[in-house]
Amino acid sequence: MRILTSSVGRKILMSITGQLLIIFVLIHLIGNSTIFFGPNGINAYAEHLHSLPPLVWGFRLFMLAAVAVHICYGVMLTLENKAANPGAYAVKKNLKKSFASENMIWTGLLLATFIVYHLIQFTIKGTPDIVIGLDSLNRPDVFKMVVTSFGNALISLVYLAAMVMLFLHLSHGIPSFLQTMGWNNEKTIPVFATGGKVISTILMLAYISIPAVILAGLLKL
């Protein structure tokens, strides 16, 4: 299995798992946006989702595997790359690399930390801010839980910081996964570089819109 050990093979695995995670980011955003339809929107969505345990658990395990592969190879490749470059230039001027491309490992690890916190908060419902209850139709009141938590400015701020990390990670990650898959040529390279920044900006703003709307008092209990 040369794909598991070779330089290019492991990058292809990083690319494929990265693409799966981007698809998750999109699906999660669509699901989250049901909150704009009020309690009936997100509570109905959550109830419907959890009425299909094999699907939910199958999806969760699949995503866990994708995250694990992405993190393991990400750390491994970064350590190898650090070792391959002794980095001892007295003067080094970079012509092309960006803050985002340079800090993929850090934005990635911070995102992973956020995901753990986010799961403890809204999936396991283990953080002190969580309000667990049922709505008028006896469904778990996800709307109330989210609105109460994001009503706390500090929690919203942590969320905002994580979405900035997501933006940085994807603004390099999107053009990078296309290049690693080989879906690139001279004409598309600049298009994908700009496209990556545009898409990651849209994703960041769309995710931030939820706590923003709650803090602005437009979505309330």
Partner: peptide, 12 residues
């Protein structure tokens, strides 16, 4: 040699 992470410093 290290692994490519698409910084594109090389081309520049």
């Amino acid at each position: 040699f290290g692994n490519c992470s698409n910084h594109y410093e090389c081309q520049a």
